[in-house]
């Protein structure tokens, strides 16, 4: 692992509080994930790739915006690994970069419909912007 990857890995581990070494590679997180079909990298791969230090691949993948943060993987993981928190830490590293915002406020009006609750908008802004 080069020092840049090492540094990125360190940041993800610190921000998420996740101990990837607890993973026993059972795949239950990916077995339970409701967003599996929409993701390029799946929850168990996040955990494993973070362990390997492959953070950039994850940061550049749309998978980080597809995670529903539903915490099913967190509560069902037999080892207490908390994959969703790892995904979130990677996503935050991506949106915190300069020009890393995934969603711009000016895009929102076009996406709205009259029934859409405010909750959807504030959540999206929180998830996709720094």
């Amino acid at each position: 692992m080069n020092s840049k990857n090492e540094n990125l890995k360190e940041q993800v581990l610190r921000a998420s509080g996740v101990n990837v070494l607890k993973c026993m590679r059972c795949g239950k997180c990916s077995g339970t994930c409701p967003a599996y079909g929409e993701m390029e990298y799946h929850p168990h791969q996040f955990v494993y790739m973070i362990e390997k230090g492959d953070i950039e691949k994850l940061m550049n993948s749309p998978s980080i915006y597809r995670c529903l943060t539903c915490f099913a993987c967190v509560d069902r993981c037999p080892r207490g690994v908390e994959p969703a928190k790892a995904v979130e830490a990677v996503r935050l590293m991506a949106v915190r970069k300069q020009d890393g915002n995934r969603l711009k406020p000016e895009q929102i009006p076009d996406m709205l419909d009259e029934d859409m609750p405010q909750q959807a908008i504030v959540t999206a802004l929180r998830k996709y912007r720094k």
Binding site: K28, G31, T32, H44, C73
Partner: peptide, 21 residues
């Protein structure tokens, strides 16, 4: 792999959702 969710259905089938790693 591991099963993550089991959903019993009205037709008597049981949908087993799991990962094939």
């Amino acid at each position: 792999g591991m099963v993550g969710k089991v959903t019993p259905k009205a037709n008597g089938k049981i949908e087993v959702q799991g990962s094939d790693m």
